[in-house]
Computed example of a mutant assay.
Amino acid sequence: MKILLGVDGTDTSLHALEQTVKRAKEAGDDVTVGIVTRDSDRSVAGTRSDVDEIIESSEIDVTVQHLDGDPGSQLVELAESEDFDKLVIGGGKRSPMGKIQIGSLAEFILLNSRITVSLIR
């Protein structure tokens, strides 16, 4: 399976990366990480460093790309233009009432992607 994973440097996206490479190692999946920038204090270099550290510890080959522009649009466009089987993103938490709450990036991707999306919490 050909998987695109969106990472924006948040803890949830890095957790999604850890889970995805773990599964990919077991399943033999092909993983590409798309690093996106958002309005945050996190630098691209810092995010790349964290991504590289997780990938090195996973002992599998992972392609890493930096995507400029609107994060949601860039991830959806890349996933569809390069025929990925699945787009994976981190995010979501439970409200006090037990309902899932997702951020604007995850919502955009879920509403606009034509391929399968997995949301890792």
Rank of each mutant, 00 (worst) to 15 (best):
T10I: 06
S13T: 06
L17F: 06
Q101Y: 03
S43I: 03
V7D: 03
T116F: 09
Q19M: 10
I54H: 05
R94V: 11
H15A: 11
V31G: 03
I3T: 09
A45V: 13
M1E: 03
L5H: 04
D8K: 01
G6W: 02
A24W: 00
S73H: 15
S104E: 07
E107F: 11
D30Q: 04
I3D: 00
V64C: 08
M1N: 05
D11E: 15
D68L: 08
T116Y: 11
L14A: 10
V21A: 02
A16G: 06
K2L: 03
G92W: 10
D85Y: 05
G69Q: 04
D50L: 09
G91A: 11
V117I: 05
V36F: 02
L4R: 02
I60R: 05
P71K: 04
P71F: 03
K99H: 14
R121E: 11
L87T: 07
L119N: 09
D39R: 14
V51T: 02
S118N: 13
L78V: 03
L4F: 01
D29I: 03
D83K: 09
D11K: 12
D68H: 13
A45R: 12
Q19Y: 04
L4M: 05
D70A: 11
I102L: 14
G92M: 08
D29N: 07
